[in-house]
Design a protein around this nucleic acid. Structure first.
Lengths: 340, 340
DNA sequence: TTGAAAGCGCTAACAC
DNA sequence: GTGTTAGCGCTTTCAA
């Protein structure tokens, strides 16, 4: 199976065509300093005329680098992609990476086979670093990458004592702020719809919720807590459950804005007005919720900054061979929209 | 910037460790035939002991191939990702590619810069082929890839005389079938919500709709056609518009199931019952619509087959240097669910 | 400022 | 069956 166009011009041919040495051509195409302007132009003309394109495999081999980083998603439910959380992060990563001249490649891992294939790919040096999103607590992939001494940065921790480098939002603080806000509004019957509680992010948000209530000296029973899987449908179900248990509910902290959207539907179906009767606050900043409910308050995560921070940490790991871990936790911001 | 672990063992060291030649090690790690079992085991032991991982850049350079293909999305609106259309295709591509030992990498292209960067990447030989999704009519990327003699396969055509290899669904036939079905049900006031009419897929579906009506000798005025951008919101708007123009509407062919979901909302908001008063048929097979409206009929595209076909065409192009283009159009299937 | 030369680590063709 | 060897196309010293 011959896979590459056979007659592609090489650097050597360009050199011959321009009447210079190989090294000089290399310098020109890499924008290295120390080349006479006239020489540079002659080389550039030869490049144009021959339609020369550098062979990246050769460059990788000689330069010991791939000029590419992978963004890995182990989430089997790709519906996730729809979340602005995802697209914002990707956008931000793309922008941050643009300055470095690296190619961002997305990799979806759904099976053990794919996981192995990616590991070989990464350990084979096809990428200089790996960014991982939505890693579950029991996922060992980050460890395996770290063991292979590949620069690796997680978005979100797997647990409180994550040791692989990561960037995370202050989920405890965000939830606490949201609940405090509700308390200040005079709400007292505050329930919460959590994410999957085997995920650290969900645990943190639940903790923030509990902290704020405890601080206000309020009750804090499990019957005010319902679990969701971050989907709209599960939010709807959780809300219905909560309403059944506590019809007096006057506020809800939801796992995400998608979940919040589900909660909204359930509330409306039950004849409650939002936010007059029941206030709803979700995490992230889901445009859908924003569109259907512009007055909804949310806990906004600094997605743009989180992406940039991930790239920064990755670069630091690449530069520095000391294998130090770096952790960045970014503050969230409560965006208050409703007037009531 | 030193990016690769420096002390990684090479094939040469494995050979020395196992007391064999380089070629033998190469044969073993590539599962080539013609190696004595005892030798193979000795090599494998050496590989294990040294933690050897092949350098993929060297392999690429020597073997003239990358063992990777890119799936490119030029769609700036990543909300698309949510569609099962996308995730199903990716799943199917992943499965088909698994057999070939190739790595699938997703690439998102939003800006001209990213487009250029990807072109260099692909022309530099980092991928053996390119799969393109949701390409707009005025996108020149496929031509540029084809010019670079890179095996390229599109999902969907840019126009009726697309010449780059592609896999597409029979959109005209699908729409025609759907409308015929409605006519057979006794519906006569049939409107359609199209996709963006600068996309060939939308033109085809509109044509199928018109064909079926013409064949039945029915009127066919533009006032029964409303355009959407495949989103739920635009579907809702389009439906409202149509209802205003023609309150007597008793059926709608929608651009996609997402659009159909929007249409449903608009219909319900207007007090119509579905499918009793108004039948709705969309393309694809959107689970959301399925969940909220299990009785909804849809035009199902053979996504699984489409993915497999894409990989097949790509392989053929890689095998065959003759630069022939291959086109595959797959039949759609009307999945009838409502009883009325 | 530039050319020449030594690899980077692997595959594949060719000997033995 | 297995070892040897000649590249693959580039980057990067090292001289000139």
């Amino acid at each position: 199976m011959v896979r590459r166009r056979p007659g592609a011009p090489t650097l050597e041919e360009v050199a011959a065509h321009a009447g210079v040495g190989r090294g000089t051509v290399s310098r020109v195409i890499n924008n290295a300093a120390g080349v006479k302007e006239s020489t540079r132009q002659a080389v550039q003309r030869a490049v144009e005329e021959l339609g020369y394109v550098p062979n990246l495999a050769a460059r990788s081999l000689a330069g010991q680098r791939a000029d590419a980083v992978a963004l890995v998603l182990t989430e089997p439910d790709w519906r996730q992609f729809a979340e602005p959380f995802f697209s914002e992060i990707v956008r931000s990563l793309g922008d941050a990476l643009a300055d470095t001249g690296m190619q961002l490649m997305l990799t979806l891992i759904r099976s053990e086979t794919e996981r192995q294939r990616f590991l070989e790919y990464a350990r084979g040096g096809r990428v200089d670093g790996v960014l991982l999103m939505s890693v579950h607590a029991d996922d060992r992939l980050p460890d395996m990458l770290a063991d292979a001494r590949l620069p690796t940065v997680l978005l979100g921790r797997r647990s409180g004592d994550e040791y692989v480098s990561y960037v995370d939002a202050d989920n405890v603080g965000g939830a606490r702020d949201a609940v405090s806000h509700l308390l200040k509004q005079g709400r007292t019957a505050i329930a919460t719809i959590t994410g999957p509680l085997d995920m650290y992010v969900a645990q943190c948000r639940l903790r923030g919720y509990q902290d704020a209530l405890a601080q206000a000296g309020l009750m804090n029973s499990r019957s005010w807590v319902a679990e969701s899987d971050f989907s709209e449908e599960s939010g709807r179900r959780a809300m219905a459950e909560l309403l059944e248990r506590h019809p007096e509910i006057d506020a809800v902290l939801a796992a995400s804005d998608t979940t919040a959207a589900g909660a909204l539907h359930a509330l409306r179906a039950a004849g409650r007005r939002v936010p007059e009767d029941v206030a709803v606050i979700g995490f992230d900043d889901f445009p859908l919720a924003e569109r259907t409910e512009p007055r909804l308050t949310t806990v906004r995560q600094p997605l743009e900054e989180m992406g940039r921070a991930m790239v920064r940490l990755l670069m630091e790991e690449m530069e520095d061979q000391s294998e130090a871990w770096r952790h960045v936790i970014l503050r969230t911001k409560l965006v208050v929209r409703e007037s009531s």
